[in-house]
């Protein structure tokens, strides 16, 4: 009797422990998105056109891992398995959460913040929502056209090596500074963009100041291709490009300018061309001589 009771107790506690672990595991899988991001909505209307654009972007960037939505054919060998984006668990997420996940990523799921524009990311979500009949969109009050009102100015102070970014909107009522907007500064390099410092928020005058590195190579004149990306609650996403003389003048001939082993055929090293062709010709001559010998041999037999 006593033994049986013990056994039962053991089973129950085991079950409870197992349930506890299952539960925490399930919780760990979900996303932890800041409240303000969670509430964010799209300024693009989710209709057939935007969903169609989104599908094309999806095919290029997401299909390889997530598979066709609704088909359950995501890449099962990854860990964690990429969810089917039509699944109810994914559809329960808010538009803001989806936007955040796609922008920031997590481990295997890549961040698309610097790869896809905000517009493209919303179009993706339009496509992801297209399989959900129950979904009703809440449009953001942000007017995408408002971003056109924004004027950005870049100032470089060569003494302190600082770059000042000033962002203002030219409203009808007058010039309004963009307050508390996220600003990122990038310098264009060979393979992509190099972020300078980190993303900073503007002050009440719509100004941020970046410490620019002193040793960044520029082109012959020291010009560097800079781009500023601003994210504002009201005005949306704005990109601005400008060339400034902030780098060290660098004049390096391209590695593919002269003849070299790694260059195209037309720019093969002379010594290689000479060696190769003369060896091939040498062998060719010997073989011709042999053929001539054989012809002679044949003629000799005729007599």
């Amino acid at each position: 009797m006593f033994k049986k009771y013990n056994y039962l107790k053991f089973s129950i506690s085991f079950l409870l422990i197992a349930l506890f672990f299952l539960n925490t595991n399930a919780q760990k899988q979900r996303w932890d998105v800041p409240a303000d991001k969670k509430a964010k909505n799209s300024y693009i209307k989710f209709d057939n056109a935007s969903s169609k654009d989104g599908e094309a972007i999806y095919t290029k960037n997401c299909l390889s891992c997530h598979g066709n939505p609704g088909k359950g054919n995501s890449m099962k060998t990854l860990k964690p398995i990429p969810p089917d984006l039509y699944s109810s668990l994914t559809q329960e997420l808010t538009d803001g959460e989806l936007f955040y996940i796609i922008s920031v990523g997590r481990l295997v799921m890549p961040a698309f913040k610097d790869i896809l524009s905000e517009e493209d990311r919303w179009k993706l979500i339009s496509y992801v929502r297209s399989g959900n009949k129950k979904y009703v969109q809440v449009l953001s009050k942000t007017d995408p056209n408002k971003s056109k009102l924004v004027k950005i100015k870049l100032d470089f102070d060569s003494l302190t090596n600082k770059i000042k970014v000033i962002a203002n909107a030219a409203e009808k009522t007058g010039i309004i500074p963009l307050k508390d907007a996220e600003v990122s500064l990038f310098a264009k390099r060979y393979f992509g963009k190099l972020q300078i410092e980190k993303t900073i928020r503007t002050n009440s005058e719509g100004i941020v100041i970046f410490n620019f590195p002193k040793d960044l190579p520029g082109d012959k004149a020291g010009l560097v291709d800079l781009s500023v990306k601003i994210n504002d609650e009201v005005y949306g996403e704005i990109e601005f490009q400008n060339k400034l003389k902030v780098g060290i003048p660098t004049d390096k001939p391209s590695l593919t300018e002269k003849r070299a082993i790694w260059n195209v055929l037309k720019k093969a090293p002379i010594w290689l061309i000479i060696t190769y062709t003369s060896l091939v010709f040498l062998v060719g001559f010997v073989l011709l001589f042999i053929v001539k010998n054989l012809m002679k041999l044949r003629k000799l037999g005729n007599n």
Binding site: V283, V286, I290, N293, L294, L297, R298, K299, L300, G301
Partner: peptide, 27 residues
């Protein structure tokens, strides 16, 4: 190739084989 075993024919075969035997080593 109209082989009749004449000395000249033998010489040609010997010479050609020798040249090829030398050439094939570096190749």
């Amino acid at each position: 190739l109209n082989w009749n075993g004449s000395l000249e024919q033998q010489r040609i075969i010997k010479q050609s084989t020798r040249i090829l035997a030398i050439l094939i080593i570096p190749v």
